[in-house]
Design a protein around this nucleic acid. Structure first.
Lengths: 209, 209, 209, 209
DNA sequence: AATGAATGAGGCTTCATTCAT
DNA sequence: CATGAATGAAGCCTCATTCAT
């Protein structure tokens, strides 16, 4: 596929979206001004309008990119040798990227926005559905699933997993900004393993012991 | 004649906060204008400033009220006869009140705000800590805890419970507004029971083993 | 003349004007709010409107009162045994009252207001004219006037005297608020005497000495 | 193509300050709205904020510009051949510029503002000090000073001169706006000469004594 | 392609004034 | 006589967006 130079240079768009992520995470979608974004990107305000129709388009594009990033994470998770490792990848994706709790704040804002902006809501729902389907599939195909706790079906397990994931991400936002990405990651991993043992280790700890 | 004079009539404050909740949920903290709130409350803009120093104070007061409401829910949960019922109360508190998904959107916004407004962050963290402590205690004292899955300690179980709760609330925000409070409640209950069985039924595997 | 109780109790009016002076001096006519005044007076906002039609009326009444106070100062000056003492009274009137540089700020504001509010302008002009006439008369009748410097006529001398007086008052406003009323007074007296020697001591210091 | 980009085009600033002067003189610092200023300048409100941080900054800049104008007047006064001419320049500077009594009203307002705004107070005090020093120096070096009345020292003479100057300016504000700049100038000149004769003609008494 | 000056609507907040009690 | 809750117009300021260069 040839990339027509019209309809935006991908590099510029990326540059702007990178800047937007920082600004959105730092101040929120609607508190971040177009000027903030342009300054963060090191370009002029007007230039943003050459690549995005308006601010809402930037937000939508961010949501879109988020969707792609989640897809990639999912792909990586899929290729992990064990289910546990897959889950670890999924649960820590948001805290080891470039910025520490930047992503968490962005995602919480994304959900908040979704509750009012149906376009964003559709996107987020779509992301979620895709990811859930992927994980459901992952579980269904993993050997551990056989001994899944309590006879829960794969899609029920996936739902619990994602709920915990979202819940931890939401909590992440409250952590003082002094917490490093590594510390956040460690915390997420701990919970992931706890959850994994709970869901897939079959009879957990033998009661009779 | 009652004397509401000194330090603000609680009724007015309540009226304003009720209106603010609707507006905040509908448009978000920063997209909701003071005019929106005054219109929703059926009063003039200026009057809000007799009861709140500024918009931030309204947001803080909302957070504060949220804290008290959570405390009350916790109290009710504490008085439930079984742990399962306690959890059901905790998990459905946000979707059966007066407004349907209003509360969910508000809470997600609250966390988003917390990531930037340290005052709000402190409040939310405080709410969370109190609630977690309460539930930890609840678990520690419940007979089911003895057979808790996987040897998880009460506070670890509480952490998982709250993560799921937050995660479900976050998801709630994506539901089309056509979903009724009852439907949301049903969904929450289902997940709650699933989680409960998982965590507290002792041997997750069939009892006959 | 009997004083009808309608058309305002003089005490309340005085109380309000006293408070207004403090507020006006502290914040300026238009920066001082009616609430400021009521708080300073220890009464409710509404009560001010029982005694004054509106804020402008308070300002006008302040100007009016200023006029009467100047008249009284003038009267005292008239009764002083010597011209120098008369001048000393006139020059220091504004810095020994209850508050220190409160009055100076008020008067400067009064002139500023006069430049836009023709009602106030008329009043201030009237005050000035009356005072000038009084001092002109004082000079004309004093023995020192005979040896007045340079053959200046009484009204020309009066004009100079008032110019210096206003000029010193204006400067007063720049003094850090740490300066006490006594220090201000001392400074004013020094200039007064300098001016007096200059204007009325006949051949000043003999040149030949 | 000139580069006015960085740190504000001086022309725009000047244009805004010119408009602000008119508005401030007409309505006072705090009564003049930003809209008034923008309308007077023929630009939009928002544009002012590209050149000034806020309204206070406009006021400060006006005070700053006043300072520079006074410096220029002082410089011109310094180059006058005789002391009398120097004084005439100083005394009439404010009433012959572009606008008639605009400047007087502005200066009175500036002093009023100085009594509450310490930043402005510092500026005005600085202007005054510089000007006083300049005139003191002017006097000290002029031959007339030798025969100065009454043995007054240069700085004492300067103080009197400035007091009279300020006093006349204050009075200027009361003049009906029908008075032309020329008439104001004439009046100022008359007083200036009177003062000069008084202060510097040596023996005020006829020379034959 | 890129800039940033310019616009103006809209948000937050204050405050003079009124009026029911 | 006195209060202070209530109103709403108006002021300051921000910011998404446009457009001449």
């Amino acid at each position: 596929m040839s990339l027509p130079q019209i309809e935006s240079s991908p590099d510029r768009r990326t540059q702007i979206l990178d800047a937007a992520l920082v600004c959105f995470a730092k101040r929120g979608f609607h508190q971040a001004s177009m000027h903030d974004i342009s300054a963060e990107a090191g370009i002029s305000v007007g230039l943003i309008y050459r690549y995005f129709e308006n601010k809402d388009a930037v937000i939508s594009a961010m949501a879109d990119r988020h969707k792609k990033e989640i897809s990639e994470v999912l792909e990586r998770a899929r290729q992990a040798p064990t289910l546990l490792e897959s889950l670890e990848i999924l649960f820590t994706a948001h805290c080891c990227e470039d910025a520490p709790q930047v992503v968490s704040a962005f995602v919480v804002d994304l959900y908040a926005e979704a509750s009012r902006n149906s376009h964003v809501a559709d996107l987020v729902r779509d992301v979620l559905q895709t990811a859930m389907d992927g994980v459901t599939d992952l579980i269904a195909r993993s050997p551990e699933a056989a001994s899944a706790a309590d006879g829960l079906k794969p899609h029920e397990l996936a739902e619990l997993i994602f709920a915990v994931s979202r819940g931890m991400l939401m909590r992440d936002v409250l952590q003082p900004q002094t917490m490093t990405a590594a510390e956040r990651r460690a915390r997420q991993l701990e919970v992931t393993r706890r959850l994994w043992r709970l869901l897939f280790t079959g009879q957990t700890q033998p009661t009779y012991a």
